[in-house]
Design a protein around this nucleic acid. Sequence first.
DNA 1: ACACTAAACGGACTACGGTCCGGATGTTAT
DNA 2: ATAACATCCGGACCGTAGTCCGTTTAGTGT
Lengths: 212, 212
Amino acid sequence: MLFPGSRIWDVRFIPLEPGSLSGASPERRDAARNRERLLEAARRLIEECGAHALTMDRLAETAGVGKGTVFRRFGSRAGLMVALLSDAEADFQGRFMFGPPPLGPGAPGLDRLIAFGAQRIAFVLEYGDLARAAEASGPNRFEVPAVVLWHRHIEYLLREEGMDADPWLMATSLSAALDPERLLHAVRVHGVTPERLADSWRELVTRVVRGG
Amino acid sequence: MLFPGSRIWDVRFIPLEPGSLSGASPERRDAARNRERLLEAARRLIEECGAHALTMDRLAETAGVGKGTVFRRFGSRAGLMVALLSDAEADFQGRFMFGPPPLGPGAPGLDRLIAFGAQRIAFVLEYGDLARAAEASGPNRFEVPAVVLWHRHIEYLLREEGMDADPWLMATSLSAALDPERLLHAVRVHGVTPERLADSWRELVTRVVRGG
DNA sequence: ACACTAAACGGACTACGGTCCGGATGTTAT
DNA sequence: ATAACATCCGGACCGTAGTCCGTTTAGTGT
């Protein structure tokens, strides 16, 4: 992580881990031990069989804990995936919020937008199914803290570039273009290269920003 | 339907109904009867309890058929939803392929793009959860014939407007902005009005087309 | 009418995500 | 050490999508 402690808010959204932000009571020791066991087992399972083979039952069995414990820790399958990506996500957040330009502050908004998309595309392609599974299904797919942060960041950069036409919705549309499921589909099914994805994103945001 | 017989290809993708396009052997009579029973039962259940309450077990029970029959007919829950929207979808296809401008041919590409988005937004908001559930999950979410057709239509209009920068991927990004899940989320959670959605789409495609 | 075949039927079965709650365990105060 | 309490644990349980396969039935040829 570039900036230790720079994690804006815990990317884990359910349950909010006690003591991770506030100074409240820390995790009980057995709980901490089980969390480590679970994360380790999850990484091993994914490495060996792929993310699609990671079922909550199998994970519980592999880690040697009860199934209830898995859900107590991570809330849902998506929550587990988010936890597995937590470090990488925090690093990404640190870089686009506080890192060097053009991704971080100091560069023009458009350049930062282009860099943001390129980095997000690289992130999604690197983590593949993991990144896709981390996008929760269900009602609050778009309320995950990390997702909200990306959206606000795009909106902020659009405003900085003088976007006057509903920057919030425009950010929503641009966010949609970075949806992991679509990116991975383009790459895996249609053989689109990562460079093409990044180029297309650059064209898209450039036209959106300049087109006004 | 504006143009009888104008349904480009059957919006039902699994299983391909024998005899719907080619002149092959038609449906057996018991199969046809059960299909009608199922569609009627599904419409009634959705009307009474909402789409979220439509489970395949309950549908089978209500229609008085076995569960296997439901899946034999429609392949999946998403396939059932697609079948329920089949007429509306065919009508929509007929209008943007052959109907009067600006949605249909005869208007400039940009105007057709704007109209297409506006109509698609209206469609999604009208059918709500039904439209959302009709987007299959699983691997071939983007291979549903109707989805492919929308994408090709957008790509075609982009090319017509002289888009030179990877029209295929640009169409993918624009399609993403019309994703039912995102549209419904914006409306239901954030109180965005349909007019705002349509305006934002107009801004988006205008900038994308003119920004080159 | 009858036999034959391909298609359709139905419901038991599996896999999976997620919930629940009685019992076990760690922490803390005395 | 002990008691009291909050937290955690585990695995039985539930609802749902989707599968499987033995049985039934609608069409067809004779």
